[in-house]
Amino acid sequence: MPLTLTMLSFHSPLGSLTHPKPLQTLNPNPALRFLPPVAGTTYISGNDAGLRFREKLLFLEHDLGVNSLRALSLNPSLRSAPLSSLKSLSSLLSSFGLLQSDSSRVLSLHPSLLTADPSASILPAIHFLLDTVSIPFLDLRLSINRCPRLLLSSVPDRLLPSFNFLRGLGFVGRHRITARTTVLLISDVEETLIPKLDFVQSLGFSYTDTVKLVLRMPSLLTFSVEKNFRPKVEFLVGEMGREIVDLKEFPQYFAYSLEGRIKPRHTMMVERGFGSSSISLGEMLKASDGEFRERLLEMRLSSVGEKL
């Protein structure tokens, strides 16, 4: 007699094929129940991983004050960084005297610090500032805030060579590197510091005068030759008709905006009939807008009085 579907389902050891038993009620192989887990294996459910990632994002946003989306975009390694490492970093920065707002700014500017190995970059830089440069501990906060890149700079490849070069240049004694000038330490000697000194000398200054200028105004070594020095010198000589020697008396000229301060002040003088020799660079640039207008008015009245 031929087999029928009814007969097969009745006699099948797997149960009825017309009404199969749900999979969740099937017992697994008893031999597999008691196998120990593979060593080093961590089982994390999708929900747990998601919660941990969300917790990390909340810590970045609310505790560190960092834009998590921007940080993840600039530093993809942050995605796999454990929350514990971020908390340790926060505590480390706090131990240097940084406020929460300071850490927020530093980490927002340089998200790579969020996954940096403190023992390889941050701590060597801190020890260098304290022990070699002799920055007082209470000034660390100022130094880091002024130049967060110090924490990412290699001591043997960048900070130490620059420090030795600057000391040889004359940054010792009362001109020593301080928390306000540690920004100079991140500059490459061959590619940044020397070319800037060479440019100043090319203007006609002796080496001695060049050194005196940068010691008097260390920020000169932070300005770009092409974006600052050259266009301002060309305007000083070509448009204002002044002498290079004026820079020796007032090197702060390079710290003022060409478009926002220098050109407008020069235009005001020309419109009122005054030549470049009528007022010094310092008098022209240091005064506020109101004070400068008053100064020009006084000069105008004085000029009229002399003619009478």
Rank of each mutant, 00 (worst) to 15 (best):
96 F>C: 07
204 G>I: 07
297 L>E: 14
41 T>D: 11
176 R>C: 15
111 P>M: 02
99 L>F: 05
220 L>T: 10
221 L>F: 03
297 L>N: 11
289 D>S: 11
298 E>G: 05
182 T>S: 09
21 K>S: 13
104 S>T: 06
183 V>S: 08
118 P>W: 10
13 P>W: 00
41 T>G: 01
187 S>K: 15
201 Q>N: 04
255 A>V: 09
108 S>F: 09
86 L>P: 05
46 G>L: 10
196 K>F: 00
292 F>A: 04
104 S>I: 02
114 L>G: 05
188 D>W: 03
274 F>M: 10
136 P>V: 03
50 G>Q: 13
66 V>H: 09
249 E>W: 02
101 S>L: 11
297 L>D: 15
256 Y>T: 12
176 R>D: 13
131 D>N: 14
298 E>L: 11
92 L>M: 08
8 L>Y: 01
236 L>N: 07
153 S>Q: 08
185 L>R: 04
237 V>F: 08
185 L>P: 02
29 N>C: 13
174 R>V: 12
8 L>A: 12
104 S>F: 03
252 Q>W: 06
205 F>I: 05
194 I>D: 01
98 L>R: 04
120 A>W: 01
183 V>R: 08
277 S>N: 09
5 L>H: 12
185 L>K: 02
91 S>R: 14
235 F>V: 11
222 T>E: 14
107 L>S: 05
175 H>M: 11
84 S>D: 13
246 D>R: 07
230 R>P: 00
191 E>I: 15
3 L>V: 06
126 I>Y: 05
251 P>T: 07
118 P>Y: 10
10 F>S: 07
47 N>M: 12
117 D>G: 06
42 T>G: 00
202 S>K: 10
171 F>Y: 09
201 Q>H: 07
12 S>H: 04
256 Y>A: 12
23 L>C: 03
77 S>V: 09
76 P>N: 01
199 F>N: 00
66 V>A: 06
150 L>G: 08
135 I>Q: 02
55 E>Q: 12
67 N>L: 01
